[in-house]
Write a protein that binds this DNA or RNA. Structure first.
Length: 548
RNA sequence: AGGGUUGUCGCCAAGCGGUAAGGCACAGGGUUUUGAUCCCUGCAUCCAAAGGUUCGAAUCCUUUCAGCCCUGCCA
């Protein structure tokens, strides 16, 4: 009893966003009738912004026990391809959402949509227009001036029927004729000024080939697709608010008797993120110019890039959940995403030791012939437990973890200073070895046996702990150091940082590569000191298996 | 003769007439086998601005200001 009560109070604390409120108002006790859809146009790869829509639509369906369709809005053959369809399906699946039996294509409705257009023509609500694109624009008016009616607006129904049929048959050239809805050329809402609903294109469609040369426009097609599929709530981004009256107009006037319920369009704000390029155009440019290795380059915020970088679906879903849904267009800081990654990874990823800029340390008082394993604990929140890591007389430490002439708040190794080697012993730097150029090539240190980790030694404290890898057993691995692709420049064109990717060889603990779980690590800690000028704040992928 | 939409902490975001949730970021302290994690603590007398209604307003009314979207045969 008590537990259910506390559970309930806990649940009520979780606030509902406005879309959930609309759904519950509209559907009442039948929220399980909720039908949403994620409707990408297959003209590019998905990015973190799309993830939000995927999470919203599929998540809502899951929450209410409704359904969510994956529908490809492929009504413009000039931009779409199967490659993108495959990629998008792969991404949605990877995100963990199921669209089995719920996969649809707008192109499958072409005939049905054509029939709907006939209904509109027969009702006197659509007409074939001969105006050129330039003229259409002229006639449309402007923000402050009403438009003019097309001279072809009053063609008879018979003539419209004949002309539209001929358009379909391919009797006209591209741009020669369009089918337009007859609404209101004086409306302050420009999307209502007799919008074009069919245009002629002879580019073959990736699915329907050359079966069609007329294609429906988004404003006409989308509401009808929703209605055909019985979508109850059509969620889209805020720039479509102006199109909502048009959306309703088509659903209303096509008046298809099989529409169980009129779909309702609800808009929410698109999300932007700092240090992120999401524009398709810019993304494509980076890929085409070879600035990145592909759509899955780990510096990109495409779903595939994030995935390759080591993000899990859980991280992305958590991010969507944390940032929420609203009508306020905002820019989320990249920190929020990174926080989700850290939070989730810390409870399931190994904390391994990897040295990227090695500095050899010889522990002069360590027995030459001794081999020893040291116990390394993983984060207590994981069920990964601990593991044994070989230690030795010669080890690599991170070059940045030693400073000959340290600033005041440097907690790591210094000449004569003492630090803990993570999981092992305290070592004290006795001698700095340099080459003829004066470069530091190695360190001679001494260790103190009684300071071994786990023995409960409390004799003295040390300010810092550093990571290390035993020279003899270290595994060489390719490591990619990178940053996000970005600069302070506000124009996306220039947001490319040439130094954002660096290939390095790192020394890593042995046997770690056997762990499939280790694909990713935020190696932030251990590599930097805050407020230290010498700090490097790398994120890195430890590419041990050449598989992502 | 423009229309639409949004304005709550540095960033997201609750709030829906009863006296400003939460997360991120940041700052300080404690624990500590990396300065991570973990644990405390602090962080909007104020909700774009100004008036008004009310015992009482971020929430209602009025006006003003700012951002974003709309004149593709793209979606």
């Amino acid at each position: 009893m008590e537990t259910t009560e506390t559970k309930e109070t806990m649940e009520t604390k979780e606030t509902k966003h406005f879309i959930q409120e609309h759904i519950e108002q509209d559907l009442g006790t039948e929220t399980n009738k909720l039908a949403t859809r994620f409707p990408p146009e297959p003209n590019g790869h998905l990015h973190i912004g799309h993830a939000k829509s995927i999470h919203l639509n599929f998540g809502l369906a899951l929450q209410y026990g409704g359904t969510c369709n994956l529908r490809f809005d492929d009504t413009d053959p000039t931009k779409e391809s199967q490659e993108y369809v495959d990629s998008i399906m792969d991404d949605v699946q990877w995100m963990g959402f199921d669209f089995h039996n719920k996969l649809f294509f707008a192109s499958d409705y072409f005939e049905q949509m054509y029939q709907f257009a006939l209904i509109l023509i027969n009702k006197g609500l659509a007409f074939v227009c001969d105006l050129t694109p330039e003229q259409v624009q002229e006639y449309r008016g402007s923000y402050t001036e009403p438009g003019k009616e097309s001279p072809y607006r009053n063609r008879t129904i018979e003539e419209n029927l004949k002309l539209f049929a001929e358009m379909r048959e391919g009797k006209y050239k591209e741009g020669e004729k369009t089918l337009r809805a007859k609404i209101d050329m004086t409306s302050p809402n420009i999307s209502l000024r007799d919008p074009v609903i069919y245009r002629i294109t002879y580019v073959p469609h990736y699915r329907t080939g050359s079966s069609w040369c007329i294609y429906p426009m988004y404003d006409y097609a989308h509401p009808l697709e929703d209605a055909i599929e019985g979508i109850t709530h059509s969620l889209c981004s805020i720039e479509f608010v102006n199109n909502r009256p048009l959306y309703d107009w088509f659903v209303e006037n096509v008046n298809y008797s099989k529409f169980e319920r009129k779909p309702r369009q609800i808009e929410f704000a698109k999300m932007q993120m700092t240090n992120t390029i999401m524009g398709k155009r810019y993304l494509k440019k980076l890929v085409d110019e070879g600035k990145v290795s592909g759509w899955d380059d780990p510096r990109l915020h495409t779903i595939k890039g994030l995935r390759r970088r080591g993000y899990t679906p859980e991280i992305i879903k958590e991010f969507c959940h944390q940032t929420g849904i609203s009508k306020t267009g905002g820019i989320v800081e990249i920190h929020t995403l990174e926080n989700c990654a850290r939070n989730i990874l810390k409870s399931q990823a190994y904390s391994i030791m990897a040295v990227i800029n090695p500095l050899k340390v010889t522990i002069t008082n360590y027995p030459t012939d001794q081999t020893e394993y040291v116990t390394l604990e993983n984060n207590a929140e994981t069920d990964l437990g601990s593991r044994q890591v070989p230690f030795g007389r010669e080890i690599y430490i991170e070059a940045e973890d030693f400073m000959e002439d340290p600033p005041k708040k440097f907690f790591r190794l210094t000449p004569g200073g003492e630090v803990r080697l993570k999981g092992a012993y305290f070592i004290k730097c006795q001698e700095v070895i340099k080459d003829s150029q004066g470069n530091i090539t190695g360190l001679n240190c001494t260790y103190d046996v009684q300071t071994k980790s786990g023995t409960g030694f409390t004799g003295r404290k040390v300010k810092g702990t550093i990571h290390w890898v035993a020279v003899e057993t270290a595994v060489k691995a390719t490591v990619q150091l990178f940053d996000y692709i970005t600069t302070e420049d506000s124009t996306e064109d220039n947001r490319f940082n040439e130094n954002s990717m660096e290939q390095k060889t790192a020394y890593i603990e042995p046997e770690i590569e056997q762990s499939a779980a280790l694909q990713f690590q935020f190696l932030r800690h251990g590599y930097f000191a805050k407020d230290n000028v010498l700090a490097k704040t790398y994120n890195c992928i430890v590419n041990l298996k050449s598989t992502y």
